[in-house]
Nucleic acid binder design. Structure first.
Lengths: 246, 246
DNA sequence: GGCGTCAAATTTGTGCACAATCGCCATCTG
DNA sequence: CAGATGGCGATTGTGCACAAATTTGACGCC
């Protein structure tokens, strides 16, 4: 197993929000699951810590962060600041092709929502913001936006109120319209209030799922990763270990 | 020597821009200079790589980045986007005390400039932006701004045109005035054009100084660091090595 | 004389073993 | 009986040695 692959898998698992906050990710345990040495896991863990997806405590180990709602407030405020700047820039620099692309996306969102296809809509909804960041064409901004949106997804996955996600589509269209009309002020306002609205939809539901074990979740994530890249199973180290004998 | 200390020293050295781009930072060499094991240096180096202050090439080592002017363009664009969002936020949220603090700072800048104290002015000038980021009270935004401003400093130190730095003070005052008057639009505009102006002052001067050796620069940086924290010399590992015998 | 190839040397990457540290639990004492 | 303290188990941190990879220099060939 590649180091980059392990990083990707763990990132997705953490961003997915399926494991409760404060879960400990032991080096030895992960090393066994992935079938690699402890040092490799260690490196990935520290990297994730630096990316703020994990909390590294000296001499204690790596723990999933417990995304407070306080933390949520900070993240959303940061997003309002950054993405306001982003749409202000975009309002002045968007090409016609990009506007068309955005219209397409917003239409797809509306379509998914109309069809009641919530998973697709949820994905598209996040992708809208990724798309905006991408259109700036600035790798730094894109990375910063990526990080913030990722943390938002973690929050939403944990604290989402199901009814809330059904009413946020028109807000994206509002932002799009302002951008298409190159109305900078209105675009900024639309983005800002959109993010504020999304934030208010978070509910302090403490979902102590404590459901599937870390092993099970990881197996699933690894399988999904393998399925995605190269449908064929990677032949190396086909560990004959019993499936989570513990 | 602490690991955090090494990180701080190297950060400052890199941000200082005193060593030419593409300089190789060998692990063994640094380990000897700092008097620690190679693994500790290694960890710090990789961390700096993740912070984009170094470029880590697999199996090749760590190199100081060569800040293109293209790269400069990207950084300044990112700053325009982020700091526009910042001042928009600040215009709505600044307290009277913060406004007073800003006025104080701008006055200090003007004073340093009037006295012809360029080093102080240069420092204050960068600090103005740090101050704005700090006043948001959002650790995420602060970190992002910190990173961008740091990279800017690297650029300015390398490509600065001496005459250019003498004419940027009123721009800060303009931003301040707009903020004090809570005129969001004007503040955004002032910040945006200020950053654009600073960017235009960069000149493609390829300063191949190649002057002092890495060892000399590091010794200096370490000494400065020691002088700053705890005036007393740390007694451990007082290496009697000859001063850069190479 | 230029160029390709090969080998030595230097430098980074990785696994392993040991040391340091932390949390927990039993025990001791006031 | 409550609180403190010391030992114990587990987990992370660190140095060391070896392996892999790249650069550099020289040699021979065209």
């Amino acid at each position: 197993m590649n180091e980059a692959a392990i990083h990707t898998i763990l990132s997705r698992l953490l961003l997915g929000g399926s494991l409760p906050g404060g879960t400990k990710l032991g080096e030895h345990r992960l090393a066994e699951i992935f079938g690699v040495s402890r040092e490799r896991i260690r490196k990935v863990l520290h990297r994730l810590g630096h990316e703020r997806l994990l909390e590294i405590v000296k001499n204690r180990g790596a723990f999933t962060i417990e995304p407070d709602l306080r933390e949520g407030r900070v993240v959303y405020e940061a997003r309002r600041i950054l993405e306001s700047g982003m749409v202000a820039h975009l309002a002045d620099h968007l090409t016609e092709a990009q506007i068309a692309r955005l219209r397409e996306h917003v239409d797809a969102e509306a379509d998914a929502l109309r069809r009641g296809d919530q998973p697709t809509w949820l994905k598209l909804s996040a992708q809208f913001h990724f798309l905006l960041a991408e259109m700036i064409g600035n790798p730094i901004v894109q990375r910063q936006a990526h990080e913030l949106i990722g943390r938002t997804i973690m929050l939403v996955k944990r604290y989402e109120t199901t009814l809330g996600s059904a009413c946020g589509c028109e807000e994206h269209r509002l932002i799009f319209k302002a951008l298409a009309g190159r109305e900078r002020g209105r675009a900024v306002k639309a983005m800002s209030s959109h993010l504020s609205l999304v934030e208010t939809r978070l509910r302090p539901i403490v979902c102590d799922d404590a459901g599937p074990s870390l092993e099970a979740l990881l197996e699933e994530a690894i399988a999904a990763f393998r399925a995605e890249r190269g449908e064929g199973a990677s032949p190396r180290h086909e560990a004959p270990a019993a499936p989570t004998p513990r």
